[in-house]
Write a protein that binds this DNA or RNA. Structure first.
Lengths: 346, 346
DNA sequence: TTGTATGCGTTATCAT
DNA sequence: ATGATAACGCATACAA
């Protein structure tokens, strides 16, 4: 206990040589070492259970292979999936992701971002709620590449990866119209500074207009949803009274869940028979509920983000890129023309 | 761009003083600095946007405030919730959690654990799938405290935090029996080395025996569930044919979801009318499905884990502790005596 | 092929 | 109250 970890000096002494040779061995400068010495080094390392200190290493080299990953909300399965892509890519490229979870607290985001610069991460991947220009400028000025995920930040031009929102929303909206729904209600959280929400809503209205369908937006604050939900009920009732088939289109998974829970409270187990619901984000419960959804290419988003970073770290100097990946429409009973029957069957 | 971050030397020069004073300022050795110098330092720091390098700091001090957090599966909401507790506590105590997500890959767990020692974390919190004695011994020998979450590891005695499984399972089982279910089926993943699964199953059988009820276990491998699900159907059918009221008790959230999806495929929207299902882990969809569940004190588990670590790091030398927190039974329509009606109503 | 010396950014020791 | 200087563990330029 209290047994200090072995250092490179210890290993050198144990192997009866200098630190340089150990360092060479560690950095794979093989072929420069005599087989004999190499063996002694290996033996010494094994005996002392030596592990090179990444901190010291990073200090010397000027890079520590650390990549900061700022996530607004790990409670959202979307984030976890993106994270998995990030992790896989990091591993493949030899980076270690420093994961920062802001738990939807804007102030946390700020603190974490500061912390990241303190740990001298080589690059950052940001999926935040309230990150503004100033916060990110520090990185840019310090020559630390930034990749944005799912959303852009006003005043910042950097690489960005995310869903192709216009295409995805168009795909989904078109599907609803084709299935015969003639009153579409787009439900979205307050757009505040989250560009993807804005884009989705814009695309929704464009598509609706292009298809000569009826559509409107309902803004819902998940922290205080009651009034929005009441409004939702009213609009649905009015439309149905007018003989229309109404479909709800949730802008993301969390919104969809909130709406679904509400509908179930209102209409009971068979709530799907009353109103159609679909969403962007194919949550794990979507299959259980038989809800149509647009599955985001989350894993690839994470992977691409790391790759972008890696390229910048490799010295690539090019204008900011934007990588928009396509979503996939997963059709389930909830938006099928003969909803009632289909939902029973599945 | 390419503008190297300012170092303590830069600040010293800018403030027209020596590095020592800057260091003193940074470490709050106030009162030893003349007001004048102090002001110059503050100005210099602000001007250069100086941030002390944690790596160098850690190298010198011998501790870097890094805590390793190994998670088997972030896809499981349980993990995310525990993580939130960990993060909050880390922040409060001045630590930075180094989050490692093994994505259910045992080999990843091993790699991450090695990486963690390489980054010289001061302590580790482990919630892993296949971590064995040997892997953890390295930490113990190096004097690095380890806290286990949700499960113990054979041959390792360290602090441990988790759900009070016997009590939770007893609570749930008793509820089922009281609601009139007389054939209980406990569904659990292969117990392989995950102590909590073993404990839950044992507690289930004990309680069932104590209550003179009928209960059996079904093992399900989520990666290949078909045969287990067929077996499940068979047992349920047999019991129901014998006039029994059967309830399924899933050992955790992922199992519950898999079973629920299966039941829905089999019985349609109104699957809850056919079989009762409850589970440990109050997943986000549980409310939507109206499923009874035992909510784990996840946040507190994470918090306690960090606190344990913090105490050890503070030098506390005491025998290994075990912190078992109580679960909370959340009763919903799925296990209510007049299931059919209730599930319609909710 | 191998070893010595210097420096990375910081803190700690010791003067002044 | 303040400042040189050594040392943390490692990598590298340079010497041998």
């Amino acid at each position: 206990m209290g047994a200090r970890r072995a250092t490179i000096t210890d290993v050198a002494r144990e192997a009866g040589t200098g630190k340089t040779s150990i360092s060479r061995y560690l950095n794979g400068e093989t072929g420069v070492l005599s087989p004999d010495l190499r063996e002694r080094i290996e033996a010494a390392i094994a005996k002392l259970d030596y592990r090179p200190n990444q901190m010291a290493r990073g200090l010397k080299r000027g890079r520590n292979r650390l990549i900061g990953m700022l996530l607004a909300d790990l409670t959202n399965p979307y984030s976890v999936e993106v994270l998995q892509g990030v992790e896989a890519a990091c591993h493949a490229l030899g980076y270690m992701p420093l994961i920062c979870h802001a738990a939807n607290e804007i102030d946390m985001e700020r603190r974490y971002l500061q912390l990241l610069t303190t740990y001298r991460v080589e690059g950052v991947i940001v999926n935040a709620l309230g990150v503004k220009e100033e916060l990110l400028q520090g990185f840019a000025q310090g020559g630390i590449p930034v990749v944005l995920v799912d959303r852009t930040v006003d005043g910042i031009v950097t690489d960005m990866v995310g869903l192709d929102n216009p295409a995805a929303v168009q795909l989904a909206t078109r599907h609803l119209v084709e299935e015969g729904f003639d009153e579409l209600l787009f439900v979205v959280q307050p757009v505040t500074h989250v560009s993807s929400r804005r884009l989705r809503e814009a695309a929704f209205h464009e598509t609706v207009a292009a298809l000569h369908a009826r559509g409107s937006t309902l803004v819902i604050d998940l922290a205080d949803a009651s009034s929005a939900l009441a409004e939702l009920d009213a609009r649905v009732a009015a439309a149905q009274a007018a003989g229309r088939r109404v479909a709800l289109f949730a802008a993301n998974g969390p919104v969809a869940l909130r709406v679904a829970v509400h509908l179930k409270e209102l209409h009971g187990t068979d709530w799907q028979a009353s109103v159609a619901l679909m969403s962007i984000d194919d949550s794990e419960w979507a299959q259980l509920a038989g809800m149509t959804a647009v599955r985001q290419p989350t894993y690839d988003i994470g992977r691409r983000a790391v790759e972008f970073l890696h390229e910048r770290l490799g010295g690539a100097a090019m204008p900011a890129r934007e990588c928009l990946l396509p979503g996939e429409l997963v059709v389930r009973a909830s938006t099928t023309r003969d909803k009632q029957h289909a939902s029973q069957g599945i």
